[in-house]
């Protein structure tokens, strides 16, 4: 374990994650139902999808703690079934639910974890200090984990995932449950990691997170990949430039669906609002007023991945 990263060819089109027809079954239920994925070195790659889309099951397989039910999976060029331990030695994992040891101090959570990677005590202490600095927790190094805020625990978990200087970090819903300020701090740290050349693989059901962090992403639904590309490509391919959000002062928004026919390229009726997909939002709003429909509010915004997801699946991401 002295040199954990032998024979690595550092080329950018090298696949760190290579999956073909990857399946994960639990009994009769296929949580992951035949996906093809390639994650290249140095990129930030996202799995976007609602709860139950199969993101976490995919991440567990990539993290070599869950054997695939079928298909081909290579991580860092190796087969998880044979080289699980060697692969895990070169990965960082930040799970969806923090699994820090609440009885240990902030620093001890890093140093004790580093020992699992065969890192010497001296190097472990040194790295713990650097990483606590990186996640802005140096002043809490000696305090116990239990009283830390959710955002601090998350940052500590991220720091812990970096103790072995991993080539690829897996982040399962890194900011779920955090308040906006804590989320921005985490995003900023992850962005710094990406700039340092660390490959990031993350799952999220937040479209803004995917747009902020991901170079490339796949949209998952029901265990399958329904679309893939850069955030911009996906928006261009599956949505219009702008969206008008209309709210009408009646319980049933659907009644207005027909009256809006022809205003935009497409419309989606949600329980609380109607989304008009249009090239020019202001022009569409003017047309709505010309038809005297009297919405209680009309908001023009740019298309987002949320719209892509809605278009692809007919459902919203967070419900």
């Amino acid at each position: 374990m002295s040199d954990p990263r032998p024979n690595v060819v550092r080329v950018s089109d090298e696949s760190l994650v290579h999956a073909r027809g990857l399946v994960k079954r639990f009994g009769d239920f296929a949580a992951v139902d035949g996906i093809d994925v390639d994650v290249r070195r140095g990129e930030a790659f996202g799995f976007l999808g609602p709860n139950g889309a199969g993101k976490s099951s995919t991440m567990r397989m990539v993290g070599c703690v869950s054997p695939p039910s079928a298909g081909v999976l290579r991580i860092l060029g190796m087969d998880p079934a044979r080289s699980g331990s060697r692969i895990r030695a070169r990965l960082g994992v930040c799970p969806q639910v923090d699994n820090l040891d609440p009885e240990l101090t902030v620093r001890e959570n890093l140093t004790a974890y580093a020992r699992f990677f065969g890192i010497s005590r001296r190097v472990a202490r040194q790295r713990a200090a650097e990483l606590l600095d990186f996640v802005q927790l140096s002043d809490r190094a000696s305090s116990r984990v239990e009283p830390l805020s959710g955002g601090m625990k998350r940052r500590l978990t991220i720091a812990r995932s970096l103790v072995n200087e991993p080539e690829m970090v897996l982040l399962d819903e890194p900011t779920t449950g955090l308040d906006p300020q804590a989320r921005h701090l985490v995003w900023e740290r992850l962005f710094r990691l990406k700039q340092q050349g660390v490959t990031l693989v993350l799952t999220t059901h937040y479209m803004d997170e995917a747009e902020q962090l991901c170079d490339r992403l796949v949209v998952m639904d029901g265990g399958r990949i329904v679309a893939q590309g850069t955030p911009r490509e996906l928006i261009e391919r599956y949505s219009t430039r702008e969206v008008v959000e209309l709210r009408f002062p009646v319980p049933d928004q659907g009644a207005y669906g027909e009256k809006l026919a022809g205003v935009g390229e497409r419309l989606e009726v949600l329980p609380d609002r109607i989304l008009l997909y249009v090239a020019d939002g202001d022009e569409a709003v003017a047309e709505v007023h010309r038809r005297s429909l009297g919405p209680s509010s009309a908001l023009v915004r740019r298309s987002s991945l949320e719209d892509v997801f809605l278009h692809l699946t007919g459902r919203t991401l967070v419900d």
Binding site: M1, V65, R86, N99, L100, D101, P102, F116, F117, R160
Partner: peptide, 14 residues
């Protein structure tokens, strides 16, 4: 409760 075993399992430990 603490789920620390899952953290151990994610490391190179067998």
């Amino acid at each position: 409760w603490m789920k620390t075993y899952s953290a151990l399992a994610a490391s190179p430990l067998r």
